[in-house]
Simulated scan of single mutants.
Amino acid sequence: MNSDVVNFFLEHLSVERRCSPHTITSYATDLNQFSLFLKEQHDSLPLTQVSSSQIRLWMVHLSENSIENRSINRKLASLRTFYKFLLQKDRIQENPLLPIRTVKTRKKLPQFLRESEMAEIPRMAETNQDFATIRDHLILYLLYGTGMRLAELISLQKSHINQAQGTLRVLGKRNKERIIPIPSFLLQLIQQYLTLCPFDSPHLIIDNKGKPVYPMMVQRLVKKQLGEISTLEKLSPHVLRHTYATHLLNNGADLNAIKELLGHANLAATQVYTHNSMEKIKEIYAQAHPKA
Rank of each mutant, 00 (worst) to 15 (best):
T195F: 03
K234M: 14
K173A: 06
T81R: 06
L36D: 12
R169C: 09
S159Q: 15
S236E: 04
L47C: 10
F131Q: 06
D254W: 10
K176R: 08
A132W: 05
I134L: 10
R70Q: 10
H42F: 13
F9M: 08
T48S: 02
T167M: 08
P183D: 13
G166Y: 03
L187I: 05
A164I: 14
L196A: 10
N69F: 05
H275Y: 09
Q191A: 13
E68T: 06
K211S: 12
K176S: 09
P290T: 03
K75G: 13
I206M: 07
S201N: 14
P212K: 02
A119H: 02
L76Y: 04
I258M: 03
P237L: 03
M217G: 13
Q129I: 15
L261I: 01
A269H: 13
A164N: 12
I92L: 01
P122F: 00
A268M: 05
R74M: 02
Q93P: 09
Q225V: 10
Q219Y: 10
M216W: 03
Y193A: 01
P290E: 00
S26K: 05
K104M: 07
L97P: 15
Q188P: 11
S35R: 07
Q163Y: 13
A151N: 11
K158I: 07
K282Q: 09
L87K: 05
G166L: 00
T195M: 01
A151I: 14
Q163D: 09
I179D: 15
S20P: 14
E117K: 05
V15M: 03
F37A: 03
R91N: 11
D43K: 07
T270R: 00
L261D: 02
H22C: 01
R70S: 15
S51W: 06
H247D: 01
R80N: 06
I205R: 01
A77I: 00
T25H: 12
K158N: 11
R80M: 00
T246D: 05
D200R: 11
S78L: 00
D130S: 04
E16Q: 10
V170W: 07
K280Q: 12
R106S: 12
L189I: 01
E16G: 08
D200S: 13
H247Q: 04
N128Y: 05
A257Q: 05
R135K: 08
G227Y: 03
G147F: 02
P290G: 07
A164E: 15
K209N: 15
L153G: 10
